[in-house]
């Protein structure tokens, strides 16, 4: 029987050790995030997992005032362009007023404590961004 692969499994296993593990395309070098079955740039399925330094630049930012039930309000969210290539949406552990487009940030693992059913990821940490000045 065909085995169904947990395509992002190694990411969450890595995050449990505060490592940011992602697949990269063997053919074109694209770092694939969220981790998936193929390279979204060239379509290759030759992917190799490795650890990257999850530093990047704040592409944009918002402070969301109305939040879903089970979430604190307000929450600060940003889109981060990682130096390694991918863009991700991330919570940011900072005051909204202190943030600007172009700020340098790093993704870190954090305990997850909101009332959202993450299914099979329920026991895994999540991530947040913190502002860094020295990278």
């Amino acid at each position: 029987m065909t085995e169904i692969e947990d395509f992002a499994g190694p990411f969450w296993e890595g995050l449990n050790r505060n490592e940011f593990r992602v697949p990269s395309c063997d053919d074109c070098g694209t770092v694939v995030f969220p981790p998936g079955p193929i390279c979204p740039e060239c379509g290759s399925d030759e992917l190799t997992w490795g650890e990257i330094d999850p530093v990047g630049t704040l592409h944009s930012v918002t402070q969301q005032h109305r939040t879903p039930p089970g979430f604190d309000s307000p929450i600060v969210l940003g889109m981060i362009d990682l130096d390694a290539g991918p863009r991700l949406l991330s919570p940011i552990d900072a005051e909204y007023e202190q943030l600007s487009i172009g700020d340098r940030v790093r993704i870190e693992a954090v305990d997850y404590d909101f009332a959202f059913d993450r299914g099979p990821r329920a026991d895994d940490p999540f991530f947040t961004a913190v502002v860094v000045d020295d990278v």
Partner: peptide, 23 residues
Amino acid sequence: FDRQFQSPMGPSIPAVYAQSLQR
């Protein structure tokens, strides 16, 4: 939103459009 990588942070639709407006 992406159930694994985005939904757990509690985003809304205006939160996305706010960021394109900002940009």
